[in-house]
Design a protein around this nucleic acid. Sequence first.
RNA 1: GGUGGGGUGGCCGAGUGGCUAAUGGCAGCAGACUGUAAAUCUGCCGCGCUUUGCGCUACGUAGGUUCGAAUCCUACCCCCACCA
Length: 394
Amino acid sequence: MFSFQLHATDGLARAGTLTLPHGTVETPAFMPVGTHGTVRGLHPAEVRRAGAQIILGNTYHLHLRPGEAVVQALGGLHRFSTWDRPMLTDSGGFQVFSLEGLRKIAEEGVEFVSHLDGSRRTITPESAMEIQWALGADIAMAFDHVVPGQASRELAEEGLERTLRWLDRCKRRHAELADSHQPSAISDLPDGRRLTADGSVQTLWPIIQGGTHDDLRQRSIEGVLALGPWTGIAIGGLSVGEPKPVMHRVLEGLNPALPTDVPRYLMGVGFPDDLLEGIARGVDLFDCVAPTRNGRHGSAWTSTGKVNIRAAPHRLSEAPLDADCDCETCQRFSRGYLRHLFMAEEMLGLRLVSIHNIRFLIQLGEQARVAILEDRFDRFHHDWRERYHPRGAP
RNA sequence: GGUGGGGUGGCCGAGUGGCUAAUGGCAGCAGACUGUAAAUCUGCCGCGCUUUGCGCUACGUAGGUUCGAAUCCUACCCCCACCA
C-alpha cells in the first residue's frame, strides 16, 4: 500500500513515484496546504487542475473545528472534503512553534489556549495520532517540537530529544490504532456510511529536528532511523527564520545519512527558488502556504521573478501573469484585470493568483522531474535561476 | 430679505492662540509573507532639496489683533437648515 520507487537520480536530485492508498505521487512534488480541509479559497477541482497530486490538512486546526469526530462521522477527511486523492495531515507540531505564547510545552504534550475561544486543549503524541487516524489521511505526521531558526543549541537539543521521545510514543499509538483497525469490524452509521476514514490504511512519517546544528541533526536522524523502518522521512524545523545558506548546509549534511529508498519531505518549503535548492539536495516532497497566502496578498511568482499584481504599472497590461504558465489564470486573464480585481477587493482575484502560484510550484516540480529523468537537472536549475531574479535577491 | 450652522490637505473628518505640515478613516503608492491565529501586516502619502535635516506653500478670500493664528476680530464670497 505504501511504496516508493526511485526512477532516476541526477547528482543528489531524485525522481520517483510514491504509492499511497488514494493514488500515486510523482516526485519531486509540491503539496498545497489545506489547513482546514480546503486549500484556502479554491475548489478541489481547481486544485486538481493545477496539477496537485496530494494536499495537506492540519491536526490542530481540524481538531478545534469542526473536531475529528465530526470529520469521522462524515466519512473521513477525503469524503468530507471530496478530495479523493492522497492527503497528508500535519500533526500540530508547527503550531507548537507558530502559536508560541498560546501554548505550554511539557513532556506529556502541549497545552494550547485555543485561538478560537480561549479554551484549553492538550495535544499529546498519542492524541495527535488518534486525531489523525480519525481524519484518515494517507500519511500522518509525528507530533514534533519545532524550535525557531535562531534557537540556541540548548533549545534545539531539547526540541530534538523531545521529538524523538514523542516519536516513540507516536509510533506505539499509531501501531495500536492500525492493529485495532479491522476492516470487517468497521462500525457503520445507521445510514450506512462507514465510521472510519475510507477504511484505508494510514502510514506514519517521522520528523527530523535539531535546528541549525549539524551534529544535532545527525543525532536526530540516527534516533529516527533507530525507530524505523519508515515509509517516508520528513525534515522539519527549517525555513523558520534561519538564513538560506544554513538550510542548504543542513540538507547537505543530512543527505549521506538518509536512506535512499524512502521519500524525503522538507516541511514548510517553499518559495520557487527554495524548491529547486531542495530538489538539488535530494528532497522529494515539499509543502508551503506561500502560494496561497501570497496569492491572496497579490504576490505572484513568474518565470522571470516575483510580481506584485497590485502595482500601478499593471493597470493597462494585457499580458498574462506569466507568458510561460499554462494555468487557468494565465490562459484567460490579463494583469490589468487581475489588478482591478485586487483593487476592488473582489475574491476572484485572490483565487486566481492562488491558482497561478500553486500551478507555478507544481509545474516547477514537474519540470525538475523531467530534467532529472533526462539527466540534465543542473543545467535546468542553472537556466531557471538565470531567468528568475526575485527582487531584493543578490 | 432675516436667523442659525458651516467652509481644513484627492475625499470624509478631528482640531478652537504656541507641543500643527496639521489626529483618524478612506483613496493612492511601495514592500513583506516559507509544515496558515494572515483576503493579513508594515512603510510612505502638500511641494522642492544635499531628505534622521532644511526651505517653501497651506486650513474659503482679503485685511487686522498678537512675539506667535486653522484657531480671535472685520469685510466679502460660497454652502446648508429654518423663517419670510
